[in-house]
């Protein structure tokens, strides 16, 4: 197991390095000259040249890359062209909102996919209806789903707020977590009501995708010989499903979950725009519109790293779930 994790970590570092390289190449091949853009149209050639030298842009490319890496390792992702803040400071400001949204979405995904998979695999009544409803929800594009939810739950029924993280409007940091631990019940409920709709919109697609894989894998597992052995021991059908079939069905489900969580990260950008959620998504859309490349690169690096880490974790979890894989690797 230690060997496996060490191997995954080594691969992880490799992939992250590759990611920085790609990002670096994009950064250096961007047609706009960041120095000229930064100094403004009236800057003299001498000043531009001096600044280029000071920032190291006249160095060979590989030196620039190593300096780029060095800066990243020191937590310096550059300065945003739009906000003129350090990008790390911007990320620190906007990331908590996105992380909170994604975590709630992940909880939704966990609950919904498990419910969908277990319910439809157990062959209970209503399973088919649930499946059809969820599949039709999941087949709609995220932005459309968001608009439909806003129309239904906000405009018509007035049940849930349609934008922002809190009613007060200004919110930074982890609203739900800090309110929960400081005992601000009202603020907690307010935050919860705000996060409900966007997180559900993000979660629906991945839940159905994972739920369907889970269903198939469970049905497969329930046909295996060892499930017959378990039944012959006289344990209840739910125990058979949860104790014997579920763990054996996890390998494909975990693969799917890893891929889908990547989609969640991209889904966040669209959903944050629809729900005016002050997170990384909103920050990125603003950066894209304003050609704020350092900001885009910063976000790409962070999201890319998260994606790679999640999938490395999936690899390890698969081996935890199925000890036979330990030998296969």
């Amino acid at each position: 197991m230690i060997r496996l994790i060490a191997g995954r970590l080594a691969a992880l570092i490799g992939i992250l390095l590759a990611l920085t390289l790609v990002v670096f190449i994009i950064d250096t091949t961007v047609p706009t000259d960041p120095v000229a853009a930064n100094l403004g149209a009236g800057a003299s050639q001498t000043l531009i040249k001096a600044t280029r030298h000071a920032l190291g842009y006249d160095q060979p490319v590989y030196v620039q890359y190593f300096r780029f890496l060095e800066r990243i390792l020191h937590g310096d992702l550059g300065t945003s062209l739009r906000t003129h803040n350090a990008i790390t400071a911007d990320l620190a400001q906007f990331a908590p909102a996105t992380i909170e949204l994604s975590l709630v979405a992940a909880i939704w995904i966990f609950v919904l996919s498990l419910a969908l998979g277990l319910w439809s695999a157990s062959g209970r009544r209503g399973a088919e209806t649930i499946r059809v409803v969820m599949v039709s929800f999941a087949s709609a594009p995220t932005f459309f789903l968001g608009i439909v939810f806003v129309l239904a739950l906000y405009s018509w029924l007035g049940l849930l707020p349609a934008s922002g993280r809190t009613t007060a409007g200004v919110a930074t940091g982890f609203v739900l977590i800090s309110d929960f631990f400081t005992g601000k019940f009202g603020g907690y409920m307010d935050g919860l009501r705000h996060v409900l709709m966007p997180s559900l919109v993000i979660a629906l697609g991945p839940s159905v995708a994972i739920g369907r894989v889970l269903r198939g894998a469970l049905l497969d597992a329930m046909r295996q010989d060892h499930v017959r052995t378990a039944r012959s021991k006289g344990i209840s059908e739910w125990a058979v499903l949860l104790r014997h079939a579920l763990r054996n069905a996890l390998t494909p489900v975990l693969s799917m979950a890893g891929l889908q969580l990547g989609l969640v990260l991209t889904g966040v950008i669209v959903v944050e725009t629809v729900f005016a959620w002050p997170g990384l998504g909103l920050y990125t859309s603003a950066a894209l519109v304003n050609s704020d490349f350092p900001a885009v690169i910063g976000v790409t690096l962070v999201l890319g790293a998260i994606y790679v880490i999640i999938n490395a974790a999936v690899d390890v979890l698969q081996v935890v779930a199925d000890p036979r894989l330990k030998q296969a690797r």
Binding site: Q224, H226, R228, T229, R243, H244, N248, A321, P323, R324
Partner: peptide, 10 residues
């Protein structure tokens, strides 16, 4: 078949 009739992950 004792391989398939025992739960492989338990």
């Amino acid at each position: 078949d004792p391989l398939t009739s025992l739960n492989p992950t338990t």
